[in-house]
Amino acid sequence: MEHIAFLGLGHMGTPMARQLLSAGHPLTVWNRTAERAAPLVTEGARQAAGPAEAVRDADVVITMLADPDALDAVARAAAAALRPGTHWIEMSTVGPDAVRRLAAQLPTGVTLIDAPVMGSTDKAATGTLGILAGGDATGVEHVLARLGTVTRTGPLGSGAALKLVLNSAVISGIAVVAEALRLADALGLDGDTARAALAKGPLSGVVARAFAEDVHFEATLAVKDLDLAAKTAQLPVIEAALEHYRRVAAPGEDISEAAARIRTN
């Protein structure tokens, strides 16, 4: 069983790391806020003091971090400690430019795969995520399969690019649903009736996520994702959704709470 270093133990990273630990992989974990590692340490993981210590003996390194700046910082700290033959699986939502920067920092003999995920905390906890794998994932596909269903997307960076496309569509769609319900309110329609009608149409999945409970995708991360998209191409609709989320997103809150504020404010 490969020795895995898992860096980033947020709402998604912790259940993903737990899946690998329960599968029997020796696991070293690191998180900028060290206390978040405590539950996994209790379950058998080893906690590292920093990124370099975490990756030093790893066969596979997995990063699940908040944004490109966090990934850049971890790469700077860890790159020199990597061994030839190591596979680095980058699973954050950071866009293809950040993946290319990471590739440029890695030493010869380290294989990089970009493999961001589709799905929220519920799917992370059950190992049923959708995984978008760019680059040569042959050596680690069995590791990724413990976290969900793997879709090969093409060359390095293509997984990160497709994740940005999919997230932009879903996040913007949630804002559209919120505005549609605001329109229903303005027209004097019963909110539950309007919601049920929307849920029966082509936006059914987006409606479900706009009202989902017991899952978590932080609204401030939605801002980050739409901002990455808006910097890549001219996207007026996505830019409008971005301004909505910038106005209402609060740290620690799920995107559904931001959608509720778009509807009412």
Rank of each mutant, 00 (worst) to 15 (best):
T220N: 03
T232G: 07
V223D: 02
A229H: 11
G252N: 11
V237L: 14
K224L: 00
D227Y: 02
K231P: 00
D225K: 02
R247L: 05
V248N: 00
R247F: 10
A241K: 04
P236D: 06
A249M: 14
A241Q: 04
L228E: 10
G252P: 06
R247T: 15
L228A: 01
R246Y: 02
A230D: 07
V248C: 06
A241H: 03
V248I: 15
H244F: 10
E239Y: 13
P236C: 15
A229K: 11
D227K: 10
A249E: 08
T232S: 14
D225R: 05
E253L: 09
L226F: 10
L221T: 14
A219H: 13
Q234L: 07
L235R: 06
A222Y: 14
K224H: 06
I238C: 07
A250K: 15
D227A: 09
T220G: 14
A233N: 04
A250H: 15
L221Y: 14
P236F: 05
P236L: 05
I238V: 12
A230C: 15
A233S: 06
A250D: 08
K231H: 10
P251C: 04
Y245T: 04
E243V: 10
P251E: 04
G252M: 09
A230H: 02
A229W: 01
A230F: 03
A249K: 01
A233L: 15
K231V: 01
L228I: 11
A240L: 08
V223G: 10
E239M: 07
I238L: 13
K224F: 08
T232R: 14
H244C: 07
E239G: 09
A222T: 01
I238E: 00
A230L: 00
E243I: 07
A230W: 01
R246H: 06
A249L: 12
A241F: 03
E239A: 12
D227Q: 10
A241T: 10
A233C: 01
L235F: 11
V223W: 05
R247W: 05
K231W: 04
L235I: 02
L242T: 01
V248Q: 12
I238H: 11
V223R: 09
L221Q: 09
T232V: 04
T220W: 05
K224D: 10
V223T: 09
D227S: 13
G252A: 11
P251F: 08
A219Y: 08
K231R: 15
A241W: 03
G252H: 13
R247P: 05
Y245V: 02
V237T: 15
A222H: 01
K231E: 13
V248D: 00
V237R: 01
L235D: 07
A241N: 08
L235S: 12
Q234S: 14
A240C: 05
P251G: 00
A241P: 03
P251N: 01
R246E: 00
Q234G: 06
V223A: 02
T232L: 13
T232K: 13
V237S: 06
R246V: 09
A229R: 06
A219M: 02
A229F: 10
V223I: 05
A229T: 08
R246A: 01
L226K: 14
A249C: 07
K224P: 03
K224S: 00
D225H: 06
L221V: 11
E239K: 11
V248G: 00
E243G: 10
